[in-house]
């Protein structure tokens, strides 16, 4: 599984990254967590509000800092 955090690197993006890392750890799954900070690349995803979260190339959330539990629900679907 590939999880991407889309955002230019502000505190909200960092918090979302930390929450995603915690969710992956708790679920004990294999996942690669990456960051997309380039605005052009973020826009290519159609994202207009950050931070956003993409799972295996599909944006599943934008414009909010999901909690660890919300991320767990999304990635265990």
């Amino acid at each position: 599984m590939k999880i991407e955090i889309l955002g230019v690197g502000c505190p909200k993006c960092k918090q979302l990254t930390a929450n995603a890392e915690a969710a992956v750890k708790e679920l004990n799954i294999q996942a690669e967590i990456g960051k997309v900070t380039d605005i052009d690349k973020i826009t290519e995803y159609g994202v207009m509000m950050t931070p956003a979260l993409a799972v295996d190339g599909t944006v599943v959330s934008a414009g909010k800092v999901l909690s660890k539990d919300e991320i767990k629900k999304l990635i265990s679907k």
Binding site: G46, M49, A52, T58, V59, V60, G63
Partner: peptide, 15 residues
């Protein structure tokens, strides 16, 4: 973008 169901656009609009 909404009509095309671009996930990033839909999720951004939800915010």
């Amino acid at each position: 973008g909404i009509g095309a169901h671009i996930p990033g656009m839909i999720e951004s609009a939800k915010a």
